[in-house]
């Protein structure tokens, strides 16, 4: 490896090693939780102040069962444990998803609005390995109980 390589060409020191991975192997499992406060925090950080993500009355008026998480909050939180596995944020070269079902985030019935009221599970498996390019494709499943909330979710990650 040359010293002049741009950051994108430098695998992280603790990056997974392609030769040690197997297609089908489950490499990441994680729980992702959202509270109403998390939706406000994401609205502020992203600039997406769409009313359906913070106002119950408006969300119901437009046909939803209640306030829902930003699809992009779910997408953003799901990749965090993948980044941890990959060893560096820049190791994620491509990330795609389809939004298949809304994630309802009810107001906590009592106590702090910081209490999580939506609970997602994330499972990532190795879908393909390119040993020449030193990349792997992870196939990611994201569920809210029984319901899949993201579909065809894939991340292409640089490995060693």
């Amino acid at each position: 490896m040359t010293e002049s390589a741009a950051p994108r060409d430098m695998p992280a020191q603790f990056a997974p090693v392609a030769a040690q991975l197997q297609v089908g192997a489950q490499v990441v499992t994680a729980d992702v939780e959202f509270s109403r406060a998390d939706l406000i925090r994401y609205a502020g950080a992203s600039g997406d102040f769409n009313t359906i993500h913070w106002n119950e009355r408006f969300a119901k008026e437009v046909g939803l069962d209640g306030v829902i998480a930003h699809g992009m909050l779910t997408m953003g939180a799901v990749i965090a444990p993948i980044v941890e596995w990959a060893g560096a944020p820049g190791a994620v070269l491509d990330y795609r998803t389809r939004f298949t079902a809304p994630v309802l985030v009810p107001d906590a019935s009592s106590g702090s609005p910081e209490q999580p009221t939506a609970f997602l599970t994330v499972i990532a498996k190795v879908g393909a390995i390119d040993e020449d390019a030193k990349t792997v494709r992870l196939d990611i499943e994201v569920a809210d109980g029984e319901a899949k909330v993201l579909g065809r979710t894939q991340a292409k990650v640089r490995v060693k």
């Binding site: 998390d38 994401y42 502020g44 950080a45 953003g76 965090a80 980044v83 941890e84 560096a88 944020p89």
Partner: peptide, 10 residues
């Protein structure tokens, strides 16, 4: 701010 909001702790 974006990292905190998306629970990205790297």
């Amino acid at each position: 701010a974006f990292a905190r909001a998306t629970q990205s702790h790297d």
